[in-house]
Nucleic acid binder design. Structure first.
Length: 323
DNA sequence: TTCCGACAGTGGGGTCGCAAT
DNA sequence: ATTGCGACCCCACTATCGGAA
């Protein structure tokens, strides 16, 4: 890199392993949009993970980067909006695609740019330096005033930090190897510890497969509320080929002509099945529209009656479970 | 030889922009 | 005015293949 220029960001690898290790440090996992900030003396640019320029969506962040005291730099961070105390992708979403900076500002949604890495400063490419050193340089290089913020990290006790993060309703924690150079693309030097949710859902339909897919595309999921079957969205991942085949056979046996849902489900070509199978589904959160976000299938549940399947909320936990 | 990482392909919710209806 | 579609954001997961160990 001869000057400050776009650099493909590091992507963290999901892991179920939690650990504490003196060679690793721990950061909050934000629920926002990844952004690489580049300035070569002129107007700073904000780029998405796929190198799409986002200046028009976040004009106040561009402005803040202009006045932060440095002429030539490349930084890595996350653009976030808050819903209460926590970062919220849903809150940010209406701004992401806006192409008119005046409209972006007019949304009234306050956004912040949390910086957590430094790739270039003044005349120097810093990507080969160890992470800890890059972070120190980053912290010292800029005047952090809203909406640009420095991302604080923990040096110790990653497991405890993870538990606290989940308790606060965060998305999770990113663990980073403290002595590693900056690596573009997917890397095992950065690991995601995700706080996940899961519960059972009734399977009440399925969609046709696309392309080379076998069996079915996705399962249509529901839960009972006051004796009526509410729609909770679809799940289309988590199956291997044999499960796609065997589940599809079971579903065909239970097919029925009309929708068992009380909600209108607009799903062209959907097949309806009598709600007797129950699936365990992992997901990140409920969306505003009552659908599952990032759902994945983790198995069939044989130990429950479909009518017992309800939407679980904090304080509405099934006391027979010990998750 | 076995294992691992990168990649392609399938699937999810949501939003905007634009063309077709 | 409404609807449908693609292109983006956020993703999870499986299958495959080639190179590293």
């Amino acid at each position: 890199m001869s000057g400050p220029a776009w650099h493909e960001p590091t992507l963290a690898t999901l892991t179920g392993r939690r650990f504490s290790d003196e060679h690793w440090l721990f950061e909050p996992k934000f629920d926002g949009v990844r952004a690489v900030g580049v300035r070569d003396t002129g107007t700073p640019k904000l780029y998405s993970r796929n190198r799409k320029e986002m200046n028009d969506s976040f004009p106040e962040l561009v402005e803040a980067l202009t006045t932060c005291g440095r002429q030539r730099f490349v930084v890595d961070g996350e653009i976030v909006a808050f819903d209460g105390r926590n970062t919220s992708f849903a809150a940010l979403q209406p701004r992401i695609h806006l192409t008119d900076p005046r409209r972006a500002r007019a949304t009234g949604m306050t956004v912040y740019y949390y910086l957590f890495d430094l790739l270039y400063l003044d005349e120097r490419d810093t990507t080969e330096l160890p992470l800890r050193q890059r972070k120190t340089m980053l912290r010292d290089a800029f005047e952090f005033t809203d909406p640009v913020r420095y991302t604080t990290h923990r040096n110790t006790d990653g497991e405890r930090y993870f538990r606290q993060a989940c308790g606060r309703g965060w998305e999770g924690v990113i663990a980073k190897r403290a002595d590693a150079a900056y690596h573009s693309g997917r890397s095992s030097d950065w690991l995601k510890f995700k706080c996940s949710q899961g519960q059972e859902f009734v399977i009440a339909g399925f969609t046709d497969p696309q392309g080379a897919r076998l069996g079915f595309g996705a399962l249509l999921l529901g839960y009972y509320e006051n004796g009526r079957l509410r729609y909770a969205g679809k799940v289309g991942t988590g199956f291997d080929e044999s499960l796609l085949g065997s589940l599809h056979a079971q579903l065909r046996d239970g097919e029925m002509p009309s929708s068992p849902f009380t909600d209108q489900v607009r799903e062209p070509g959907a097949h309806w099945v009598s709600p007797s199978l129950i699936g365990q589904i992992e997901f990140t959160e409920w969306t505003r529209d009552g659908r599952l976000r990032h759902p994945r299938f983790s198995g069939l549940r044989e130990d429950k009656n479909p009518t017992e399947v309800v939407r679980e909320t904090p304080g509405n936990e099934d006391v027979t479970e010990n998750r």
